[in-house]
């Protein structure tokens, strides 16, 4: 009873775009934080709005800054229109594997990114890097030459540039029409996260998929974020409980992230889709293409862009 009324009054809104209550890893990350905080009994209640049921996916960053929501599991690149530096968190070839991603989190590169996040008034509660894959209806995509003449739909601007640099033509289609587009032939290749490859049932349309393996090109930073203003409004015990819960959520993600890739491989193999991975040499060839396309544009258009990429590439 001593917790008092002011503590009871704190209710936070957490929003994300992923399906709720169906075991999606990113939904689970947010749910874990909500559950743990509730169990800590510090008078903090987190309401989760999954599936973009409150704020549209792309608007979440802005919504958090304005105080419309407090917490979000958010693909950081979505805010690259506001902070071009974030483009580096969906940049081909910067992250090679989940182990590499873990090392990257503490690197100067990520410190630089997190500084931009913090300067914008946001703090990172839990880190999360999701791996992605390339898929094609034609032949397997291993070398840049393999995409010559393909019509590719890409999840992000930086990848689109690399595809185009390797000789593919780019089609821009909303994510919910990708299945259709692949089926009718509007597009015949695509890249996205391994989770989306499964949830959009792309194994029904593709003939070959390039899984992340040890030489992945596709990684995206999708951390759980919180508005600094909302965080500072909490009491000390509430802040501590929240940070502790976030730690748990991050650990959960670390143990699950690779399983997402395995799930994709399993689903695709079950549907007789060929699953391949890139060799060191093949991935390096792609990085060469990226150097001339996405890296180059990024260095030109973003202040410090070249430095950011070099910092990321230097992480072993």
């Amino acid at each position: 009873a001593m917790v008092g009324q002011d503590a009871m009054a704190v209710e936070l809104k957490a929003s994300h775009q992923f399906p709720g209550g169906k075991g999606d890893v990113r939904d689970e990350m947010v749910q874990i934080i909500a559950r743990e905080v509730a169990a800590a009994n510090v008078g903090l209640d987190i309401k989760v709005y999954p599936g973009a049921s409150l704020v549209k996916a792309n608007e979440q960053w802005q919504a958090m800054l304005k105080g419309q929501i407090d917490i979000t599991a958010f693909p950081l690149d979505y805010a690259s229109g506001r902070h071009p530096e974030f483009g580096a968190t969906l940049m081909p070839g910067l992250v090679k594997s989940h182990e590499h991603a873990a090392r990257l989190n503490g690197s100067p590169f990520m410190q630089e990114i997190k500084k931009v996040i913090e300067d914008a008034g946001v703090i990172v509660l839990a880190d999360a890097w999701l791996a992605g894959a390339f898929g094609s209806k034609e032949k397997c995509i291993l070398e840049p030459a393999d995409v010559q003449g393909l019509k590719a739909r890409s999840a992000g601007a930086t990848f689109a540039e690399m595809w185009a640099g390797a000789g593919a033509s780019i089609v821009s289609i909303p994510s919910n029409e990708v299945y259709n587009a692949l089926q009718t032939g509007v597009a015949n290749a695509t890249d996205t996260s391994t989770g989306s490859f499964v949830s959009f049932r792309l194994y029904e349309q593709l003939s070959c998929v390039t899984a992340p393996g040890d030489n992945a090109l596709w990684f995206m930073y999708e951390p759980v974020l919180m508005s600094k203003r909302s965080f500072e409004r909490l009491t000390k015990p509430q802040q501590e409980a929240l940070m502790k819960a976030s730690k748990k959520s991050e650990e959960y993600f670390a143990s699950e992230s690779k399983k997402l890739d395995d799930k994709m491989i399993e689903a695709f193999e079950k549907n007789n889709v060929k699953v391949v991975t890139m060799s060191d040499k093949q991935a390096a060839a792609w990085r060469e293409v990226a150097k001339k396309t996405s890296y180059k544009t990024f260095s030109e258009k973003v202040k410090n862009g070249g430095k950011l990429i070099d910092m990321a590439l230097s992480v072993e």
């Binding site: 704020v55 608007e59 802005q62 909303p174 029409e177």
Partner: peptide, 19 residues
């Protein structure tokens, strides 16, 4: 009243859909 400031981008965002 503070909740009103979210209306413009919510409405714009809702219509801003290629479909």
């Amino acid at each position: 009243f503070y909740a009103l400031q979210f209306l413009a981008d919510t409405m714009f965002g809702g219509l801003n859909d290629f479909t």
